[in-house]
Design a protein around this nucleic acid. Structure first.
Lengths: 381, 381
DNA sequence: TCGGTTTAGTCCATAATCTGTACATAATCC
DNA sequence: GGATTATGTACAGATTATGGACTAAACCGA
C-alpha cells in the first residue's frame, strides 16, 4: 500500500523491457515475432526493446533457430550468460559460502570456506566474508562477467539490513554493512533455500521448503514468490506446537517441533548426520526410533502448516534430505491420516534435489530475479 | 507468473487513473496540485486524469478546501459517493444477507433474510438469494446509485466460481451461477470478513482475523491484501492440531482446534451465544470453564499460526467477539508464554469492531477495491 | 530453376500520452 | 493596492508505441 507513483514514458519503456525479458526468461528462446505475439506489443516495439536488451548484455541473438517451417526463419533471442552475473553468499554455522551465477542461472563459480561460527564475533566473520567476496568477484571478472548485485543468506531472522536474531550464531541485532558496492540484500536461510529449490531444483512454482538444520525453518513459495508475513518472520516451522505440554524449548515455549525433530534431537550423541545415515542403513534400532519420532512430530507440525499455509507440495531439505528415506513414511502417514477429507489429496511430499547449496544458490537467484523483473533499473538502461 | 502483457499508451493512462484515484482514496481529499506532488505526475496530467474521473462519477470537486494559507486556494477532489456502488452478499448457516456500499465505503442499504440453510438444497437458496439481489439492486437504483459489481461470501472453500466444500451447509462442488450481469466473485467467509475488518473496522493493514462460527476460519491480511495460499485454502485455523492424540474431529483428524473452541464445543447444550454470555456474566462455573478451555486451545493454535503466518495483530471476530472478555485472558497468556523470546512482543490481541456484518461488508468492499485499483476497466473509461 | 507464398524483421509516418513553460486566477501579506 | 504565492489550464514539444509498407529469407510446387 505504499504511495505509488505515476507512469511516465520512461517507466512505460522500463516495464516493456521487463515484459520482453520476462517472456524470454519464462519460456526459453523466442523470435522477435513470437515475443510480439506473446506480449501483445508490435514487432516494431519488440525489435527496439530487444536491441536495447542486447546492448545491455541481458540477451543475445542465436540460440535455437526454428527452421523447417514455411516463411523466413526468425532469429531466436535468448538470455545471455556471457556478461551479467550475480553473487550469492551464505553465513552458516560451520562454513561461509559464495557462488557466482550468470543470467541463465548457470553456476559459474563456487567457494566454500569451513569455519566454526557458533557464538562467534560478527566483526571477524563479516571481515572473512568480505575477503571471500573480493576473491570471487575478482575471479568472476577475469571470466568476463560483470557482477551486478549480491544477496546474503543467514540462519536467523532479518529485518531490512539488520540481522535481528540468529540463535545458533549467537548474534542479535547485528547491522550487516554493505559487503559490496552494489545492490545488496540479506534474507533468511530458509527463504533463500526455498528460492534455490524454485530456480535450481524442481522448478515447481508452489511448495513449502522445509529446511532441517540445527533449527528448523520453512520457506513458502506461492506462484514463484516467497511469502514473508508482516515482519518477515513467517515460516518458523521449528516452533509450531506439537505437544502443548511437551518439554521446554530454548525459545521459551513447550513441545515445539524443534525439540523433537531438530538436528540435536535427531543426532543425540552422534557426531554427524552421515554417521546417523550409516547407522540407519545398518538398521540400528535406536537410530530408526529417533527418525520415527522426528517424522511423527514433523507430520503433526506439517498438518498445521498445510491448514494454515496451503502449500502446493512439501519439499524436505537440509539434513532432512539424506534422511528422507527414513522420514518419508512417518511424515506422509501423519499428513495422510490427519488432513482427512479437508482437501482432495494431501500435498505431495518430496525430497530436495539440491541439498546443502540451496541457500547460496537461492541468494544469487534472488538478484537474477530482480534483473529479470527490473532490467532497466538493474542494468542501467 | 502469468504471461504479462506489454504496456501501451492506453494502459499507461489506465494505470495513471488508478494511481490518482488510489491517492485520493488512500489519504482523503486532495487538490490537483497535491495529487501531482504525490504521484510524481505533472499538474497538467493530473488535471486531465481528474476530469476523466469526475466524468465517470468516481470523484467530485468539493470536499474540504484548504484555506488560510498563502496563494490561490486549491479545489479539493474527493471520492464521490453519489453515483457508483457495489453489492455485498452472504450465504450463512442461518441467514442470507446483502448490502450496498458506495465508493466512499458508506453503507447505503442492508438487508438480512433469516433462513435455515443447514443441509439445504443449493437451488432453493440461490433462487432466494437472487430475489434478494434484485430487490436491493432496484432499491439502490432508486437512490441514484449504479451497482457495478458484486461479491458473495460463503462458509466454505472456494475455487473460482465453484463452492468446493461447505460442510455446515452440506454443499459440495456447487457451481454458483452469476447472480448479477456484472463483475461477480465468490470467496470464503473468513477471507471476506478479514477484508471487512480492514475496510470497515480497525483499518489496520496487517492482521489475522479469526472468524469463530460453527467452524473456525481465519483470514490473514498482509499489507492490505488477503493471503490465500496456493489453492485458496489457507487459513483453516479450525483444523490446526492442538493435541496430537486428542478427540476425533469431523475432518478426519484428531485434536483439532475446532473440537475445543468451535461453537458446538463452547455452547454445549446451550441454545445460543447470547445465552452463554448471560451465564458468563452471572459467573456460572461451567460456562467459565468452557471459555477457559477454548481460550487455552485457541492460544496454542494461535501460537503455531503466529510462527507460520507472522501476523501484525490478531483480531477475534464472529462469536468470539461477544465472548472476548472471557477469552482474552487465557488466549493472551498462552501466546505470551509460548511465543517466548522468538519475537519482541507477541502480536496484539484485539476484538473485532464490526461483528456479524464483517463478511457482507468485506464482500462489497472487495469490489470497491477493484474499482479503486482498476477504474478504467471497472468504470469503462 | 524460378516464381509464388509465407513469415520475420525494419522503416517511417502517425497517434497517444506525458512534460514543461507560460499564463490567467485567486487568495494572503504588508 | 501592489507584491507574493500557489492553483489550475493552455499549448508546444518530447517520448514511446502503432500500423501499414517494404525488404529479407526461407519453403513449395511446377
Amino acid at each position: 500500500m505504499a504511495a505509488s507513483r505515476g507512469v511516465r514514458h520512461d517507466s512505460m519503456r522500463a516495464r516493456n523491457l521487463a515484459v520482453v525479458l520476462g517472456a524470454i526468461h519464462r519460456s526459453g528462446p523466442h523470435t522477435r515475432a513470437a515475443l510480439a505475439e506473446m506480449t501483445g506489443l508490435t514487432k516494431t516495439t519488440v525489435s527496439s526493446l530487444v536491441s536495447d536488451l542486447i546492448e545491455a548484455g541481458a540477451v543475445a541473438e542465436g540460440g535455437a533457430v526454428r527452421g523447417g517451417e514455411r516463411g523466413r526463419p526468425g532469429v531466436a533471442v535468448s538470455l545471455s550468460g556471457d556478461r551479467v552475473a550475480t553473487l550469492g553468499l551464505e553465513i552458516n554455522i560451520d562454513y561461509l559460502a559464495a557462488c557466482v551465477v550468470d543470467l541463465t542461472r548457470e553456476v559459474r563459480l563456487r567457494r566454500t570456506r569451513p569455519a566454526d561460527n557458533r557464538n562467534s564475533d560478527p566483526v571477524d566473520i563479516l571481515g572473512s566474508l568480505r575477503d571471500l567476496v573480493k576473491e570471487t568477484t575478482a575471479e568472476a571478472e577475469l571470466a568476463g562477467l560483470r557482477v551486478i548485485g549480491a544477496a546474503l543468506a543467514v540462519p536467523g531472522t532479518v529485518e531490512g539490513e539488520v540481522l535481528r536474531n540468529a540463535p545458533h550464531l549467537g548474534w542479535r541485532d547485528v547491522r550487516v554493512p554493505d559487503l559490496v558496492d552494489l545492490p545488496f540484500v540479506i534474507d533468511n536461510e530458509a527463504n533463500l533455500a526455498a528460492l534455490g529449490e524454485l530456480w535450481f531444483g524442481s522448478r515447481e512454482t508452489d511448495f513449502l521448503y522445509v529446511s532441517g538444520e540445527i533449527g528448523i525453518g520453512a520457506g513458502l513459495v506461492v506462484d514463484g514468490t516467497v511469502f514473508r508475513g508482516t515482519f518477515g518472520l513467517a515460516g518458523e516451522l521449528g516452533h509450531v506446537v506439537v505437544v502443548p505440554d511437551g518439554p521446554a524449548c530454548r525459545c521459551g515455549g513447550r513441545g515445539c517441533l524443534e525439540v523433537y525433530a531438530g538436528q540435536d534431537a535427531l543426532l543425540g550423541a552422534l557426531p554427524s548426520v552421515s554417521e546417523l545415515v550409516t547407522r540407519l542403513e545398518s538398521g540400528e534400532r535406536r537410530a530408526l526410533e529417533a527418525c520415527g519420532r522426528a517424522g511423527h512430530a514433523l507430520g503433526v507440525a506439517l498438518t498445521s502448516a498445510v491448514h494454515l499455509l496451503d502449500p502446493g507440495r512439501i519439499v524436505l531439505g537440509g539434513i532432512y534430505a539424506p534422511l528422507f528415506p527414513w522420514l518419508e513414511g512417518p511424515v506422509a502417514e501423519g499428513l495422510g491420516t490427519r488432513l482427512g477429507h479437508m482437501r482432495g489429496t494431501p500435498p505431495a511430499l518430496v525430497v530436495s534435489g539440491i541439498g546443502a547449496d540451496a541457500a547460496v544458490l537461492g541468494a544469487a537467484g534472488l538478484i537474477i530475479q530482480q534483473v529479470i523483473a527490473e532490467p532497466a533499473q538493474m542494468l542501467g538502461l
